[in-house]
Structures are given as structure tokens and as C-alpha cells.
């Protein structure tokens, strides 16, 4: 069943992609093939393979129970927050929180998570910024 849905989504994606390809404006300087042809070929392959997946599905994968899905979703939200807040609050603070959160959700105890968070963030800061000179996001405190 999962594969049928997957195939249908893929087919829709292929159709959408083909439409978007048709929308590409041709430049008057175009070469013989033009910018549309190859994307359309790709859309065709994408569509055909999606249909085959939908018509000849494999056994369904084992989907995690709802609470595990929520777990992944929460991790994604934390990562997005991390990406958005990184330039605002600086590397060390943002990273310490994100790493501590992930460690905690992967089953570390609270104290351990805090240590992992601080250790990861300070460790990466030391190696990447102080030793290797990579510019990391600077927060209000300069780190």
C-alpha cells in the first residue's frame, strides 16, 4: 500500500515537473535542443518509474508508531529553529541546545544530555573555529 501512495505522489511530482518545464521561457538565443527538452525527458522517466512502483508495489516498510513519527517531526522542528536562530544567538548557544536536545531524545539522561550539548558545541568551536579558522555564526556575545 505504501508503495502505491509513493508511486502516485511520484507521478504527481513528474506531472508537476513537466508543467514547470513547459513554463521555462525560451531565450531567443537558444540552442537547437533548448532548455526544456532534457527536463521533459527526466519528467518522463520519473513518471514511468513512479507508475511502475505504484502498479508493482513492494512489501510495505515498517512504519514507526505515531509517537516515533512525532519524535522525528520534533527533531526536524528543532533543527529548523536551529538553522533560523543560528545567526541570531550565535553558534555556541544554539549548538549546545540543539545537541543536548538530540542527545536527550536519543535516550541520554538529562545531565548527560547537557554535558553532550556543551561538550559538542565547545568542542566543535575549539576545533573548527579556533584551530581551523572556520567562521561560525557570531551571536550577540561574539561566539
Amino acid at each position: 500500500m505504501s508503495d502505491r501512495i509513493f508511486g502516485l505522489v511520484g507521478a504527481l511530482l513528474a506531472i508537476g515537473y513537466a508543467f514547470a518545464a513547459m513554463q521555462i521561457e525560451e531565450s531567443f538565443l537558444s540552442d537547437v535542443v533548448g532548455p526544456k527538452a532534457f527536463p521533459l525527458i527526466i519528467a518522463t522517466v520519473l513518471g514511468i518509474s513512479s507508475l511502475i512502483i505504484a502498479l508493482r508495489p513492494d512489501a510495505s516498510p515498517v512504519w514507526p508508531p505515531l509517537n516515533r513519527l512525532a519524535e522525528i517531526f520534533a527533531a526536524v522542528v528543532v533543527m529548523i529553529l536551529y538553522a533560523e536562530l543560528l545567526p541570531e544567538i550565535g553558534f555556541i548557544i544554539a549548538t549546545a541546545f540543539a545537541a543536548a536536545y538530540l542527545a536527550w531524545r536519543l535516550g541520554s539522561s538529562v545531565l548527560e544530555s547537557v554535558l553532550v550539548g556543551i561538550g559538542t558545541s565547545v568542542g566543535i568551536y575549539a576545533i573548527f573555529h579556533l584551530v581551523l579558522g572556520l567562521s561560525l555564526a557570531r551571536g550577540p556575545f561574539g561566539f
Partner: peptide
């Protein structure tokens, strides 16, 4: 253990 390793991997990727 992965519960310590994986956060490090994620953070190194971001960095």
C-alpha cells in the same frame, strides 16, 4: 554509544 555520537554527527554536518 550512538546517543552521544549522533548529535555530534548532526552538529558537525550543520557546521
Amino acid at each position: 554509544p550512538p546517543r552521544i555520537l549522533m548529535p555530534v554527527v548532526a552538529m558537525v554536518s550543520f557546521v
